[in-house]
Every structure is written in C-alpha cells, then in structure tokens.
Design a protein around this nucleic acid. Structure first.
Lengths: 262, 262
DNA sequence: TCAAAAGTGTTTCCAATACACCCATGA
DNA sequence: TCATGGGTGTATTGGAAACACTTTTGA
C-alpha cells in the first residue's frame, strides 16, 4: 500500500507551486451503453470511496482547458463535448472534508507532508463540467489518487466523496433542461444506430417511454438523420434501417435549440 | 484625488488576509424602466471607466453569499432574485489587465503598496451572477473603488473594464434562454402594472414586437395574474386594467418553467 | 366626433398525441 | 405460422398566429 502513496504524493507536491490555489474542476462524464446512462467514476486508493474525475487549474491554463485536460487523461479522448454547468462554492464543501470517510483517509495520510497536507485541506471552489462520451471509444484510466476508473450506471450510483453526488445530480438536471441544446445522439451513440437505439437513449434520459411512431416522424422531420441500408438483425422481426447523423445539420439545429418536444 | 485613494486602499489592504485568493464574483444586475432594460454599473475613480459591481470571496463565506453581499451593498436591497450563470476563467482575463486603461490606472497607482499591488495584479477566476431588481426600489451606492453607481440602458453600454462586456453579454444570453424560468415580471415591474407594461417588458427582452391580443390571452391563461380595479389613465383611450402577480402561482409555474411561447 | 388603446372574438393552420394497419423476419 | 418489432397512415385535439370587431376615453 505504502508505495502506492509514494506515487500519489510526489506528483502533487511538485505541481503545487504551479497551481492556482482554491480552485478545482470536476467532470461529470456521461456515456450510454446497454440502454443505460453511465457516469465515469474513480475509486480512490485505500478508502475505496468513489469520486468524480477532477483536478486543479494550472497558473498558466484556462479554466476550460483544465477540464479538457482532466477529460483527456481519464478517457483518452480529446474531441468530446464538454461544457461548464455550475460552480460549487459553499463552505460545507471544505468542512465536510473532516468527516467524509474517503477524504479523511487522504488527509490523514498526508499529515507528514506539510505542503501537500495544507493544500488538500484547503477550501476549494470547484467548477463542474459536463461531458458526453461514446463509451465504446473510451479507455478509462485511473489518476494518481485512484485504483479504478469505471463507468457506473446513474441508476446505481455509489456514495461519492464530498459533494460529488450533488454535483452529479446537478449535471443530470442540466442534461434534462438543456436536452435540445446538447449533442446527445451524436456524442453518445455509435456511428450507425437504429431509430430504436435513439429512442431508447432519449427514454433513458427522460425517464419515461415515448410513442414510437411519433418519435420517428418528428426525428426524421428535423432532417439531421441520414438513412443507410438495412441492418442484418438476426432477430425475429423486420430488419430496421440504420441511421447516422448529418453533423452539419445537427450542429446547426443545436445553435437555435432543436425544436423537439418529447 | 489622492485622498480618494487613501480610502480606496485601506479597506482592501486590511481585508486581503481574510479573502480567498484567485476568486471573485461579478454581478449583472438588471432593471427595467422607461421601457428599457438597464444594468447597474460602477464608474471607477480616476480612470473613469465603467465596471460591473463585483467583489471578493471571504474565507468564511459561501460563494453565493459573496454575490449576495455585493448585491446588497450596491442596491440597498436584500430580497432580490440572484443566480449564478457562468464562471469566467480564461487567462486573458488577467493578461488584459496590463493593457486595459481602466484597470492599468488602478494597478499603477498601487505600485507603492506591495501587498495590494500583488493582490489586484493576480489572476482571478470570476463567477458571474445574474440579478433582477426593481429600479424604483433601489438606492445605488458606489463602492470604495468608484465614484458613481448608475443604471445604464443595455442598448447603450459603455466600454467596460476587462471582460465585463463579455460577462454582460453572457448574462443577457442567459436571460433569453432562461426566460420561462426567471421571475421577470415579478422582479422588474412595480406591484401594479398594465398588460401593456408586461408586454413591453417582454418585447424589450426579446427584441421584437408581440401580438397584443395573443399575448393577453396567453398570459391570463397562465393564471398568475390578478386583475385589479381600473386605472385612471389620463390618456385619450380606454383605461386599462391593472394587474398584480399571484406570487404563489408564479413561483409554482417557474418550478416547471412557464409554458409560454413568445 | 375622432384617434388611440383596450378588451374580446374568430378563423386558419400546424404540431402533438393516440392508435390502427400492414410488412418483414427468424424461430 | 406466429410472435415481434418496423414502417407508415389517420383522426382528434389544442395551441399559436393573424386579424377583425367593438368599447372606452380625453382631446
């Protein structure tokens, strides 16, 4: 265990002077697989508690770029939809550190190293970023603090450190409200997909079922779907069409907000 | 002039140790009068440049409370709609300080006092807050840095320091997008108002004219307006009804978003 | 009496919804 | 052939938009 910590301390200790104090970023990275929305989470060393991927902001780095860096380092992907959604600045964020089992273990361990100890024990204001990623393309990589990096379904979220559950909830609220302004399908589905795939995705987000016939008509009417050749299904039913997105049209629609009622 | 600066420096110098480094808040406070949307601005001493009301965050203060404090100190009002809308964290925010005429004058003046000089010359990440205030009730008060505090129409915004013009634009975008979730009428109009007042307000925000008949019907259908006795107008036309809001219904509608298309 | 604005009513059109019908496929 | 899901069509409903008509008021 202890050599894990050696690796853990050193990079942070070297970096601290190059970081902005009091500010951090946390990313809620959403994916979709097996008809489930999922969030990319990290499991911290020793305490075993889960956390959102996050990081600090370098003195010579844009806030947005810090989030982008965290995102790339965890997913291995660079061209991903990423947007700031809320900044969390309550005092409780730091006071809870003393009683949060996951965070406390981290703090206690660092008591030896005054510099790092004071740094992580500090009050941080964190800007939350919202990201959409195609799970199939990602290669989840743990950071120096964690032993695992995994996709967890939002219907079965573990207890997260600090206020990370709150941050996640706020991100999901954001998803619901901003539905018509986010590249949901384009970001979460593979290149080719069926109309049912798309509908199931929206149903997962909205938490309710939609009328198949009307969904199809309205989606097609938007003009952002390109119908491909048929799919060989292997299932005991009519083979559905495959679709892909016309990116130009999709992006244009998002500008004004897709006029879609669900 | 110089005694102005004495007053200016001293409060900040004392406060610095009690403030979070690198973080500030800026408030875009909107009001409505004479059929115009207005923003509350401060005119800085010596340089004469205009700026958004802003401030720093105390070590023992919630981020939201810091914004609330700024808002109260400038307007004299406490119960005002206030909401965070975006956090500005680009590097240019600080690099521009050296060439921004308004900010440079401030920096230059403080060269004597190392502590304050380093503080204001630092890189800050600023969280923008959006507020709605009834102009008639406010008592604009300049802060220690400024000589004036005035309402300026958004159609004739002066050049603001740093990225404050950008922040204002983003706030107005936010207003447009969040229209159905913001207590526009309740916050910006006096207790009693005519249907035309309400319509003109929405027209000012949307930047286009609306059909009188349809506006009235849709607004009344929402059930959040209470019709009062007639108004003595003094104009050469039929006297219009006066309305006020049913706050309970209004608040409830805002929860789900007023289902209103304009 | 007249212009201006207020209040109310009417018509048209389109989108949302619910649901019916037939088609294709593999077990 | 039958269950399953896919593709398409239709009737109903309600709201948005455009606009017509009448009413009230002070000049």
């Amino acid at each position: 265990m202890s050599d894990n910590f050696e690796k853990l301390i050193s990079p942070l200790e070297k970096e601290i002077d190059d970081l902005l104090p009091s500010i951090s970023v946390d990313c809620v990275i959403l994916g979709y697989k097996n008809q489930q929305l999922k969030v990319l989470l990290l499991q911290w060393k020793h305490s075993g508690k889960w956390a959102l991927p996050g990081g600090f902001v370098r003195r010579n780095e844009n806030l947005d770029d810090a989030a982008q860096r965290v995102l790339e380092q965890r997913t291995g992907l660079s061209k991903i939809f990423l947007k700031q959604f809320h900044t969390f600045g309550s005092l409780e964020r730091s006071t809870i550190k003393q009683i949060d089992a996951g965070y406390k273990a981290l703090i206690d361990f660092h008591k030896q190293n005054k510099k790092v100890y004071e740094w992580i024990n500090n009050r941080f204001i964190s800007t939350g970023y919202f990201a959409l990623a195609d799970i199939r393309k990602t290669h989840p990589i743990p950071d120096a603090f964690s032993q695992k990096c995994e996709w967890k379904p939002i219907t079965a979220m573990p207890d997260l450190i600090l206020d990370h559950n709150t941050i996640t909830e706020k991100a999901l609220d954001y998803l619901g409200v901003q539905l018509n302004y986010l590249p949901i399908g384009l970001s979460l589905l593979p290149q080719k997909f069926t109309m049912q795939d798309l509908q199931k995705l929206y149903e997962a987000i909205l938490g309710r079922s939609l009328d198949r016939s009307n969904f199809q008509r309205k989606m097609l009417k938007l003009g952002m779907l390109v119908r491909k050749e048929k799919l060989m299904t292997g299932a005991a039913n009519k083979a559905p069409y495959l679709y892909s997105f016309n990116r130009a049209v999709y992006k244009k629609l998002l500008q004004e907000g897709i006029g879609f009622s669900y």
